[in-house]
Simulated scan of single mutants.
Amino acid sequence: MLLNFNGEVALSEWLAEEERPRLLNVRTASGVPQTLEVMIEPVGNDYLLFGELNAVEQEHLSREVLELNHELSNLTREFAQSNAELQLVNSKLEQSQLQLLQSEKMAAIGQLAAGVAHEINNPIGFVNSNLGALKGYVEEFIFLIDAYERYADANGTATDQALQAVREKVDIAFLRDDVVALLGESRDGLERVRKIVQDLRDFSRIDSPDWQEADLNAGMESTLNVVWAELKYKAEVVKRYGELPPVRCHLGQINQVFMNLLLNAAQAIEGQGKITLSSGVEGLWAWVSVEDTGNGMTPAVMKRIFEPFFTTKPVGKGTGLGLSLAYDMVKKHGGRIDVTSEPGQGTCFQVWLPVAGPETPPA
């Protein structure tokens, strides 16, 4: 409230006059001029002024308060509506990102399909070959058993000579050793197929809602088996895993992060190179790194590698979404990805994740 004096009487003199009601010209916050009758009461070196607005101004102020309350109510409704719309947009965005993750996963599986088929066909091929050999061995065993049954009740030198001839024909010593070896090879081959299929199943669980206490080293090994056909002709893989505590995470998504980093490392290497896989823990954080001896990156490229659709690969060789999605998935876990690179020296991606998981896991 602004107090306006006419300037003819000094304020000190005006206040020092005998105690009586005084008139003040005031202008309220609404801009309405008023003459206010006040009483003055000294308080130490200061003065308190007491007075009331007239009924017109009180009514005007009440009307202003009602208008402001009405405007506030409208703004509250608009805010609630905007908030609901924002939640809907966020929900649609999460669904779109999940679909994008699924599409990227399917694109990766398509890229790996030929290599995985080769990795499965190799053991299946020699298991099939072993089964053919085992069929012949079983037939010879049956032939030998039949011979023993045929001469079981006969005695004499002729019988012994006939059985010896059958044994030499069958080569029982060789069969005894080779049957065990073929069964062992076949079992190993089938175990390789089972492991590849299990790793593919683990990798395909990208859209599973389950958060779990997971072994990141095992996740990296599982992913490495899935992409092995893409790596084994390009690089030597060196493993330097440290001991890690169980990390609360969505392992299917973290496996996809590992896959993107492994494939990028292989593609960055021209000719033959080396990929080093490391892991460790520092305080409340676990980390896993993928380091390659590839071409490396310039600072200008490093600034953009996590941008959607940015890629340095030839047309048709990449979507430019791999690292962008990996960055988003790690961020949702409350983690981060550190990158170091030197042109011509190689690149290292280091994924950091909180051991306890994000403070508020995404739905």
Rank of each mutant, 00 (worst) to 15 (best):
K135D: 15
V138T: 14
S129Y: 14
R176D: 06
L134M: 09
G110F: 00
H118Y: 10
F143E: 12
A133E: 15
G115R: 00
N155T: 13
N130D: 12
L134R: 03
E149W: 01
D188M: 06
L190I: 05
A107K: 00
L144D: 03
P123L: 09
G156Q: 00
E168Q: 11
A162R: 01
G156D: 00
A114Y: 08
A147Y: 00
D188Q: 09
Q161Y: 04
D160I: 11
P123M: 07
Q97R: 15
L134Q: 07
G110T: 02
Q95P: 06
Q99E: 13
L144I: 02
V180T: 10
M106V: 09
L100V: 01
E139H: 06
Q95V: 09
K92G: 01
F143N: 12
R150I: 02
A107C: 02
K135Y: 11
A107E: 04
S91E: 14
A108N: 08
D178V: 13
L163C: 05
G132C: 07
A158C: 01
N90M: 10
H118F: 06
D146F: 02
A133K: 09
R150S: 13
Q111D: 14
L134N: 04
E104Q: 07
Q95K: 12
G110V: 00
A154L: 02
D146M: 04
A181W: 03
D178Y: 09
R187C: 07
I142S: 04
L175S: 06
N122Q: 14
A152W: 05
F141L: 15
F126Y: 15
L101V: 04
G184V: 01
K105Y: 13
G115W: 00
N128F: 09
Q102F: 03
L163R: 08
E140Y: 06
I120C: 00
Q99C: 03
A165N: 07
E104V: 02
Y137E: 11
D171E: 05
I172E: 13
E94H: 07
L182K: 13
D171K: 06
E94P: 00
L183R: 05
A117K: 15
E149P: 03
L112W: 02
E139T: 05
K105P: 00
Q99Y: 04
S91A: 14
Y148T: 03
